[in-house]
Design a protein around this nucleic acid. Structure first.
Length: 420
RNA sequence: CGGAGUGUAGCGCAGUCUGGUAGCGCACCUGGUUUGGGACCAGGGGGUCGAAGGUUCGAGUCCUUUCACUCCGACCA
């Protein structure tokens, strides 16, 4: 895409009410903007592109693991929530309202009930099991105190998956599969993360694990073992515990952002909602369930919390809105512009996501373009400037801001090597 | 919900104590000069000062009420 045609309102100064790094940078770099209400944000083009990329990675890995993507309405009849008693349990976080016929509804904060409803009216036989259905859509929670930008907004993009099984053993198999799938997703996104034992909270059920993006700004405190892979939220391990319950190693304390959470549910939803299937002995049994969530919009905040410097964002390769930013130093110079256009086409032909900074207005000089590149944080920039007459360009790596001069002819190949 | 703050142009702020024509920087528009690290000169546009009520000849400023937002806490798949 062309910078000149994209709405990218970068800012030198951050709004004074933003305190968290990711919040400040995402606002300043023009990914999101405030939307007039607490915890509500407009997603601008760069933010939308990035969110869609992260979403696509989540979808890709889930589909590979055999999950079925569906889409449920954002609006759920409150009666479904009353079947499980969660209408009361969730309290004021559930935003409730009535339609013109005085029927009560809620904006979905999560969808266990709605998905159980989908399955109970569709799946009748053990032969249709196991089944894992998921959706990636907007959730709304009327948080007591929204804060930190995308970290705790009231409206947020969540991937919520629900699995249905005939036996506990099969549910445990799926739980392990989802843990592995989540590890692939977080790894592809370039995140430094830890899987920890967790409390099941309002969702209920037996076992649960959280996927923590490690960051000092995280709202959760976790204990991790120095010797093995054990980790736990302080909710489930005493904060003064110093010995690993798994291997006897030493525990240390750190902070994390909860970006994923998987649960072994059993029949806590299927029983009250009478979601049953006929087993091979022709008897009705409630589904054994698991549920698996990822805070997709929160992941963006997590990526930036982990990857930034004083100049701006540093997106990881698979999450970046664009992989390469072609900076045409003087867009009015025909030779430079033509070289930029040519490179733009060549990289696109190779499947690289490229942004062509073709801005030619007199306010947007070389300095502005470089500052915008650093603030937005794409992995690479190619500077096409005066040396283009000798066939030379400069390649800048955002992480570390290393610059290397090279021949334009070898550039496409070099970039492809770096991306491989 | 408890505590503390803040609401003045798109963003950042001054002006409020001590009432007297609405200001500054950035951004935006026009023209010119610039052009490899957020340019310069000149001119210009944009405001019911969060809202309502009150005091006053006169309110951004004083009084009352209210709303919103932010931070700390409690809470939170």
């Amino acid at each position: 895409m062309r910078f000149s045609r994209l709405l990218i309102p970068t800012m030198k100064e951050a709004p004074s009410d933003a305190v968290l790094t990711s919040h400040i940078l995402l606002l300043r770099a023009g990914f999101i903007q405030t939307s007039g209400g607490s915890g509500l944000y407009n997603w601008l083009p760069l933010g939308k592109i990035t969110l869609d990329k992260v979403r696509a990675i989540v979808k890709d890995e889930l589909d590979k693991a055999g999950c079925n993507e569906v889409h449920l309405p954002m609006v759920t009849p409150l009666s479904l929530w009353e079947e499980t008693g969660r209408a009361d349990k969730f309290g004021k976080e559930l935003l409730r309202f009535k339609d013109r016929h005085e029927n009560s509804f809620t904006l979905s904060p999560t969808n266990e009930e709605a998905m159980v409803n989908l399955v109970r009216q569709t799946v009748k036989s053990y032969k249709q099991l196991p089944l894992n259905v998921y959706q990636i859509n907007w959730k709304f929670r009327d948080e007591v105190r929204p804060r930190f930008g995308l970290m705790r907004g009231r409206e947020f993009l969540m991937k919520d998956a629900y699995s249905f099984h005939a036996t506990t053993e099969d549910m445990e198999r799926e739980f392990a599969l989802m843990e592995e799938t989540y590890k692939k997703i977080f790894t592809r996104l370039g995140l430094d993360f830890k899987v920890v034992e967790a409390d099941s909270g309002a969702i209920g059920g037996a076992g649960s694990k959280e996927f923590m993006v490690l960051a000092d700004s995280g709202e959760d405190t976790i204990m991790v073992c120095d010797s093995c892979d054990f980790g736990a939220n302080v909710e489930v391990v005493a904060e003064d515990e110093k010995t690993c319950p798994k291997c006897g190693g030493e525990l240390s304390q750190t902070k994390g952002i909860e970006a994923g959470h998987i649960f072994q549910l059993g029949t806590v939803y299927s029983e009250p909602m009478k979601a049953e299937f006929l087993n091979e002995n022709q008897k009705l049994e409630p589904f054994i369930m698991g549920t698996y969530g990822i805070g997709v919009s929160r992941l963006l905040a997590g990526i930036i919390e982990q990857n930034h410097d004083e100049k701006g964002c540093i997106w990881t390769k698979e999450s970046a809105p664009f992989t390469v930013d072609i900076i045409v130093a003087k867009a009015k110079n025909t030779e430079q512009m033509e070289a930029g256009e040519k490179l733009y086409a060549q990289l696109q032909a190779k499947g690289v996501d490229v942004l062509l900074d073709d801005r030619a207005d007199k306010k947007t000089g070389f300095g502005v373009k470089v500052k915008d590149f650093e603030l937005i944080g794409m992995p690479y920039a190619v500077v096409i400037g005066n040396d283009i007459s000798e066939g030379k360009v400069e390649l800048i790596t955002r992480d570390g801001l290393e610059k290397e001069e090279m021949a334009l002819d070898s550039l496409v190949e070099t970039i492809l090597e770096k991306l491989a």
